[in-house]
Nucleic acid binder design. Structure first.
Lengths: 112, 112
DNA sequence: TTCTTATATTCGCTTAAGCGATTATGTGAG
DNA sequence: CTCACATAATCGCTTAAGCGAATATAAGAA
């Protein structure tokens, strides 16, 4: 996290907050985000790249998938508080977590 | 603080972060902010109003002055962490605090 | 190679936001 | 009332950012 202001700009959009909330659960690929939040592929990709440029998340390519995960270190612990103490009190973000759980279950079943 | 997203948008601008950092010290009027940060009156006023609309600060009118102070409650404690653990490690914000101290001293001397 | 799937990028558009400069409003002093 | 001062609001402009739609890229499968 080079630039604190870039991080804060990344936090000032609802879609990116919703994505961040999901990534606090586990590493996810773009399609997991699309499915869970019911947003377009372009939108998911764009916001993930924005978060990556702000150095809040990192990516890892494996075959045709790109997996995104958190890159929040101790220097920006206030984001942990934001997520756990604020976002997760809100219904929208709770629902997103439930949808993620449901989606991952469906996805796993398809692969068996 | 009705809307968390509004608060985060208010935090995504450097001038507003600098103002917030000053208000963490004490209640200030618009001219204190202008002088300390060396910004125009219109700019100071605009950003203070933005912070007020986001319900991060409140105002109090006394004679021809408008005093602004923090309106950060326990529900958004992550902002305390942002200010104390992050902003105040940065030179810019430290300098602002020193400039505030100097300005308030000059101001008091003129009134005696 | 061709086809499919996952992801990223570009285009055109719309809206939000920041700025300096200026003007308006409101308060107190004389 | 008139003047000075503090603050807010408006105007015109520029730039950033978000969006859907479409296209490009890259990897694996066949």
């Amino acid at each position: 996290m080079e630039n604190l202001l870039d991080a804060l700009k990344a936090l000032s959009d609802e879609t990116r907050l919703r994505i961040l909330n999901l990534l606090y659960e586990k590493e996810l690929c773009v399609c997991d985000i699309m499915e869970t939040l019911q947003i377009s592929q372009a939108k998911a990709s764009r916001h993930l790249i924005y978060l990556k440029n702000a150095e809040l998340v990192k990516d890892r390519k494996h075959a045709q998938w790109v997996y995104y995960s958190l890159a929040i270190d101790e220097r920006i612990k206030f984001i942990d508080s934001l997520v756990y103490d604020n976002l997760r009190n809100l219904e929208l973000y709770q629902n997103d977590l439930q949808n993620l759980k449901d989606w991952l279950k469906r996805k796993t079943m398809n692969c068996e």
